[in-house]
């Protein structure tokens, strides 16, 4: 399998580093692939730029960072504007249209999905938007198996929140598989 590079970007507090850990864990622990996860963030615990990167490969992973992501998830306009130019030609962009107005490059696979709104509608809170995003990302790209991502989510989220997070994950998968008019517009 080739090396797949994934970048998850947004603001501190959106749970993107946790999403990166869950995705890497799904690949490494449950799918048996190699995975490396790194992050960069500011000194703030909320606000400020936050970025998690995941590399999934059948081979050994030497350089652990992502320069040209195959898959880019953006959950803030700032992150979109900063990283959209890095997307590998033909790569996949997933934009949370609750926060972002995307300007996708020519040839990209684009998923414009109101991830934060879906989180609110599904769970009553915006805080599960990271898990909704993981569901959408996995459904859109198949970078890890459905079984692996479910197990990884269940193992990492706080006790007592497994059910609600699996609901959020599933909602993210569904919106990619069966986009409702005006919300999950894959083109």
């Amino acid at each position: 399998m080739k090396r797949t590079e994934i970048r998850l970007a947004g603001e501190g507090g959106q749970g993107l580093i946790l999403a990166g850990i869950i995705l890497a864990e799904a690949a490494a622990v449950y799918d048996g692939a190699n995975a490396v996860q790194t992050q960069s963030y500011g000194p703030e615990s909320r606000g400020g730029a936050s970025k998690a990167e995941v590399i999934i490969s059948e081979d050994e992973i030497d350089y652990p960072k992502v320069n040209r992501p195959d898959i880019l998830l953006v959950m803030s306009q700032l992150a979109h504007d900063k990283y959209i130019g890095d997307l590998r030609p033909g790569g996949t962009l997933i934009a949370d249209t609750s926060n972002v107005t995307p300007r996708a490059p020519e040839g990209a696979r684009v998923f414009e999905l109101p991830l934060t709104d879906i989180s609110v509608n599904t769970t009553g809170r915006a805080i599960a938007a990271n898990i909704v995003a993981l569901g959408a990302l996995v459904a859109a790209t198949g970078v890890v198996s459905k079984d692996a991502i479910e197990k990884a989510v269940a193992a990492r989220v706080p006790a007592g929140t497994v059910e609600v997070n699996l609901r959020a994950l599933n909602a993210g998968m569904e919106v990619v598989r069966r986009p409702a008019t005006g919300s999950g517009d894959a083109h």
Partner: peptide, 9 residues
């Protein structure tokens, strides 16, 4: 910081 914070299999 890279090795300290990096997660690997």
């Amino acid at each position: 910081e890279v090795i300290g914070h990096m997660r690997e299999k």
